[in-house]
């Protein structure tokens, strides 16, 4: 097994305060990994950095086998402007970005791929609905269908099951399982520990500092979770510059 993503002494943050501090991790190709931790643990920040949307404060992210285009990123749905007058088909078609770019045309086969992806998440008949009319679950189905169109080897999902009903969660988990079976590398941020225990073989527990990583049952122990909670309370407004060598 080779590493799909190597994180080397990675520090990420805002305004010099670290949100992820000195993280070393190898994420092997084809694994299904949950990223857990309390609020403010740096989970979303880590995903954004791997997606290339923010630049590390220090350390590096190495994607040996993936070009940037082979990464598909699902932001938290709160970051989407749902008042914008755009319909479901057009949002899912954004997943064609790597084939069409900013200026290219959308071919008949591209349209067929978009339609198939919309069908696969059970949103038939919603193609021309404005996104402002979708429920939370339908919105998330739409975003998963955009991921299907992107057809990437690495998938990064930020809180995909938050505020989603159980039927939708089950359907979307089926898609995650399918990607795993297709040997794609899938990273999912979640704070639903029961769901993680049930569906994710591997876990990284993060609380700004890395707490533990490996097999899920070995990581999500009462001891580790208590350590994570303690760590997150240690924010210091007047923190000194970190002395650990970069």
């Amino acid at each position: 097994m080779s590493a799909a993503i190597s994180l080397r002494d990675l520090t990420l943050g805002y305004d010099r305060h670290p949100a992820v501090h000195h993280l070393d991790a190898e994420i092997e190709s084809g694994t299904l990994v949950a990223i857990c931790g309390p609020n403010g643990a740096g989970k979303s920040t880590l995903l954004k950095a791997i997606a290339g949307a923010i630049v590390p404060l220090s350390g590096s992210i190495v994607l040996p086998r993936a070009k940037p285009r082979e990464i598909a990123y699902l932001p938290q749905s709160a970051e989407i402007d749902r008042t914008f007058p755009i319909d479901v088909f057009d949002v899912v078609a954004m997943g064609l970005f790597h084939t069409c770019g900013l200026f290219g045309g959308v071919s008949r086969s591209d349209r067929a791929r978009v339609a198939a992806a919309i069908h696969a998440v059970g949103l038939d008949g919603f193609e021309r609905r404005p996104i402002s009319t979708l429920s939370g679950g339908q919105l998330q189905r739409m975003l998963f269908s955009r991921l299907l169109v992107q057809d990437a080897s690495i998938l990064l999902l930020d809180e995909p099951f938050t505020a989603i009903d159980s039927k939708t969660t089950a359907d979307l988990l089926d898609l995650v399982a399918r990607w795993h079976a297709e040997h794609r590398t899938v990273l999912v941020v979640s704070h639903d520990l029961d769901l993680v225990r049930a569906h994710f073989p591997q876990t990284i527990l993060l609380a700004r500092e890395p707490i533990a990583r490996g097999k899920t049952e070995a990581v999500l122990t009462a001891e580790n979770l208590a350590a994570a909670r303690k760590m997150i309370e240690a924010f210091d407004r007047h923190a000194h510059a970190c002395a650990r060598p970069a």
């Binding site: 932001p75 970051e79 755009i86 200026f103």
Partner: peptide
């Protein structure tokens, strides 16, 4: 017209655009 697609994506979902371009 040239900017249109980028502008739409940037307005609807800026994090997505940042992840692909």
């Amino acid at each position: 017209a040239l900017l249109y697609r980028a502008l739409v994506i940037e307005t609807v979902d800026p994090s997505f655009l940042a992840s692909v371009s």
